[in-house]
C-alpha cells in the first residue's frame, strides 16, 4: 500500500482536500501599482496527496497557499477546502500551518506552544497536554517538552512548529518554505521526518518550496508556476513509490524527475530560471 493510499484511509472527508477554481488574485487593483499575482489558477489536491508548489519568486506560490489558508481573499474564483468554503475551513481549523520561521512563543514552554491551537479550541487542560505530548513524541522531541523554544536548535524548533500544526489533527497541512532556513543535512532529515509523520497521521499537504530536489523528494505531484502574471505552467507527477528515504535521492528516477521539473522551470524563460538559481545560491548563504 502506498503512502497516499495509507493517508487516504485516515481521512474522514472522502472528497478532495483542496479545490481551487478559476482563481484570480490582483493586488492594488485599478491603480498604477496593480500586480496580477495569480491568474486563472485551477488546482485540485486529492485527500492524502502531497503537492509541492515550486516556481521563481514572484510567481505567487506563497499567495496561493495564503489563499487556501484564507489568510487573504481571492479577487475572483472559488476555493473549497475539505468540502467547505476556505473561510469556513479556517474557522473550523481544518488545516494546520507552518511558516519559514518556526514562530514559537518564547514565554511558553515547548509543550505549551504545541498546546496553543488546542487552547483556542477550548480543550481541557489534561486532554490537550496528553495530545501535545503525543505530538512531541511524533516529532521525537518529547524529552524537550519542558524546555523553552530558544534553547532548541533551528531544526528542533521547526519540528515543534510542525507538531503544533498537527496538534488539532488537521486533515490538511499548509507549509510555506518551512525548511528554507535550515542547513542541507537538517533539511534532508526533516523532509524524511515530514513524510513519515504525514503518512502516519494521514494528512494531505500543500508544500511551498524553491528547492527542486525538495519538491521532487516530498511530493506526489509537483506544481510548477511562472511569474508575471503568476500561473500554473505544468504538473509533474512523481511516481517514486514509498517509503522514500536516502536511497530515493540516488534513484535514477529521482534525477529524471528533478530534470523534468528543472526543464519545466526553464520553459518559463531563461531569465526566470536564472533568477531561481541566483536566489537559490543566495538562500544557501
Amino acid at each position: 500500500m502506498s503512502d497516499q493510499e495509507l493517508r487516504r484511509q485516515h481521512v474522514a472527508w472522502p472528497g478532495n482536500a483542496v479545490e481551487v477554481r478559476s482563481v484570480i488574485k490582483t493586488f492594488n487593483a485599478g491603480t498604477p501599482k496593480q500586480v496580477d499575482a495569480l491568474v486563472d489558477i485551477d488546482l485540485t489536491v486529492e485527500s492524502g496527496e502531497f503537492v509541492s508548489l515550486i516556481g521563481p519568486s514572484g510567481c505567487g506560490k506563497s499567495t496561493l497557499l495564503r489563499l487556501i489558508a484564507n489568510l487573504t481573499e481571492p479577487t475572483a474564483g472559488s476555493i473549497v477546502v475539505n468540502g467547505k468554503p476556505a473561510r469556513q475551513a479556517r474557522v473550523d481549523q481544518d488545516y494546520g500551518m507552518a511558516f519559514q520561521q518556526a514562530g514559537l512563543f518564547d514565554w511558553r514552554t515547548v509543550v505549551r506552544n504545541v498546546e496553543l491551537p488546542l487552547e483556542l479550541k477550548s480543550w481541557d487542560r489534561a486532554r490537550r497536554r496528553a495530545r501535545a505530548m503525543e505530538m512531541l513524541e511524533l516529532v521525537k522531541l518529547d524529552e524537550f517538552a519542558g524546555h523553552r523554544p530558544w534553547q532548541l536548535s533551528g531544526g528542533m524548533q521547526q519540528r515543534v512548529a510542525i507538531a503544533r500544526a498537527l496538534a488539532a489533527a488537521p486533515e490538511l497541512l499548509l507549509m510555506d518554505e518551512p525548511f528554507g532556513a535550515l542547513d542541507e543535512m537538517t533539511r534532508e532529515h526533516m523532509q524524511a521526518e515530514l513524510l513519515r509523520i504525514t503518512a502516519e497521521a494521514g494528512t494531505s499537504v500543500v508544500f511551498v518550496t524553491h528547492s527542486i530536489p525538495e519538491a521532487v523528494f516530498l511530493a506526489d505531484r509537483v506544481v510548477v508556476m511562472s511569474p508575471r502574471p503568476g500561473r500554473i505552467t505544468e504538473l509533474v507527477s512523481v511516481e517514486l513509490g514509498d517509503p522514500r528515504n536516502t536511497d530515493t535521492r540516488e534513484d535514477p528516477l529521482f534525477f529524471k524527475k528533478v530534470t523534468e521539473v528543472r526543464e519545466a522551470l526553464r520553459g518559463i524563460g531563461a531569465k526566470s530560471a536564472d533568477e531561481l538559481l541566483i536566489e537559490g545560491v543566495a538562500e544557501e548563504r
Partner: peptide
C-alpha cells in the same frame, strides 16, 4: 511579529484571544 498574528488568524482566534495569548506577552 506579523507571522505571529497570521498564525493566530489561521486559528481563527478572536482579537481578545490574540491580545491575551500573543500581543500582551510579546
Amino acid at each position: 511579529p506579523a507571522t505571529s498574528l497570521e498564525l493566530m488568524r489561521s486559528y481563527a482566534a478572536t482579537w481578545g484571544e490574540t491580545l491575551r495569548k500573543v500581543r500582551l506577552p510579546a
